[in-house]
Amino acid sequence: MSMFKKLLASVGIGSAQVDTRLEQDSLAPGEVLSGEVHLTGGDVAQEIDEIYMYVITHYERETNNNKVKEECVLLKHRLTERIVLSPREHRVLPFAFRLPYETPLTMGRQPVYLRTGLDIKNAIDPGDSDYIEVRPHPLMTKVLDAVQQLGFQLFKVDCEYNRHLGKTYPFVQEFEFRPTGSYRSRLEELEIVFFLREDSLEVFMELDKRARGFFGALEEAFSLDERFVRFRLHQEDLHRTASEIAGAIEQMIRKQLR
């Protein structure tokens, strides 16, 4: 009977189970993700080589004129080394680690989730997945509010493969805005990419100028209609109002549109 139970456990029937419980499932990049991993033994004792936790997201990559989704592991956290879990034993293991500063925001349909798994030899690894809401860092919120004050409306947010701009990971998260105010006649769109660090936020901004006449069409054909702006905010900028930051951004935009 014992051998039969071991056989069943090896294919996942009557095997150990894992349940991850997050202390909070809404965080900003750079904040600490914490909680508990609850282990419940199965019908037989099992050796668990390790308990691993992955923070995962997806991004789009263009291949042969088709867009495909690819998985990206943002972080791997090893919770514990080898343990033996007795039949029906219940064990609770706390965890805490910092969410990477480059974690994309879960705006639109962008997923970020924590995958917990048990590495058990000669058996199907039990696992658990928990979605995480990643909200903007306060410095990001300042920029997003400022841009909207200038009359730009957020149109699309997605993660795109980009080896040139991507630093730690092979993608960047792009925030695409459409002008609705005074810039409507001069710009097609405004794209923003954030590079968050512990004490600062670098902002990369691309301005797509609206083509005007023959020379405007030439500029668009040769991608000369795109202008780029880069600036950085620090923790002390949190004391500035969104209107103050909007004024500074507007000066940079106007300089590029001259």
Rank of each mutant, 00 (worst) to 15 (best):
M3K: 15
K5C: 08
L7H: 06
L8W: 10
G14Y: 06
G14W: 05
A16P: 05
V18F: 13
R21A: 11
E23M: 11
Q24F: 15
A28R: 00
L33M: 00
G35Q: 02
V37G: 07
H38W: 04
T40F: 08
E47I: 07
E50A: 14
I51P: 07
Y54K: 04
Y54V: 03
E60P: 04
E60S: 09
E62A: 13
T63L: 15
T63A: 14
E70I: 13
L75T: 02
K76A: 10
H77M: 03
R82G: 10
I83V: 13
V84E: 14
V84L: 13
P94V: 06
F95A: 04
A96F: 02
F97K: 03
R98T: 02
L99S: 06
P104I: 00
G108N: 05
P111H: 13
D119T: 12
D119S: 15
D119L: 15
I120C: 03
N122V: 14
I124V: 09
G127E: 12
D130R: 07
I132C: 06
E133Y: 04
R135E: 13
P136M: 04
P138L: 06
K142V: 08
Q148R: 11
Q149E: 14
L150C: 09
F155K: 10
D158N: 12
C159G: 09
C159W: 01
T168I: 14
E176P: 00
P179K: 05
T180S: 14
G181N: 08
S182L: 14
S185Q: 15
L187C: 09
E189K: 10
E189T: 08
I192P: 02
F194M: 08
F195W: 02
L196M: 05
R197I: 01
S200R: 11
L201C: 02
F204M: 12
A211D: 11
L218T: 14
E219N: 15
E219W: 09
E220P: 01
L224R: 00
D225N: 14
V229Y: 11
L233Q: 03
H234Q: 09
G247H: 03
R254K: 15
R254I: 15
